[in-house]
């Protein structure tokens, strides 16, 4: 097995162990309430034990038939993940719909749209139409921000 083949079993094993540890920190419920049933911590621990057994089987499977190596994602993919983080930051710091418009525009460009006016109109018209639909038809109130403060007053 190559070193990279250990990443998936390793990550899931660590995750399972962390969940077991966190489960062991949970409060115990009085026996009166639990009765013959189980403590709230028991079920997650039971699940993670099953997970560890399955990881053992997966590792054995990888040992017998090493998986094909996964090529690294193109920059579009990593760029899109970064845009999701940008979206989070802009929503918290500025405005929900401003964040959507900016991320849509950047995503259009990142994914290969060379016509700037097309990317710009997509990024402006789509959030506007969605806002009108949800605000006027479905009566949804969106979180306040730079733009929506001005709209809501």
């Amino acid at each position: 097995m190559k070193t990279s083949d250990w990443i998936v079993p390793g990550v899931i094993t660590v995750f399972s162990c962390v969940v077991i540890y966190l489960s062991l920190q949970l409060d115990l419920s009085p026996p009166m309430i639990v009765g013959h049933s189980m403590q709230p911590r028991a079920f997650p621990i039971f699940l993670m034990v099953i997970n560890l057994i399955l990881i053992g089987l997966l590792t054995y499977q990888f040992y017998k038939n090493p998986p094909a190596s996964i090529p690294l994602e193109p920059f579009h993919t990593w760029g899109t993940i970064i845009l999701l983080i940008v979206f989070y930051g802009l929503t918290v710091a500025a405005d929900f719909f401003l964040a959507i418009a900016v991320v849509m525009f950047l995503m259009c460009i990142l994914w290969g749209e060379k016509r700037i006016p097309v990317a710009l109109s997509t990024a402006l018209v789509t959030p506007f139409l969605i806002f009108v639909l949800f605000d006027q038809v479905l009566m949804i109130r969106f979180p306040r921000g730079i733009i929506l403060d001005w709209y809501y007053g």
């Binding site: 259009c108 994914w111 990317a119 979180p143």
Partner: peptide
């Protein structure tokens, strides 16, 4: 339809749609 236009639109629907369920970020 070019995916460079289609998927940003899907993104907008996904985030607004999920927010609208219980108006929670």
């Amino acid at each position: 339809v070019p995916i460079s236009i289609l998927w940003p639109i899907v993104f907008a629907f996904a985030v607004v749609g999920s927010y609208s369920l219980s108006s929670a970020l």
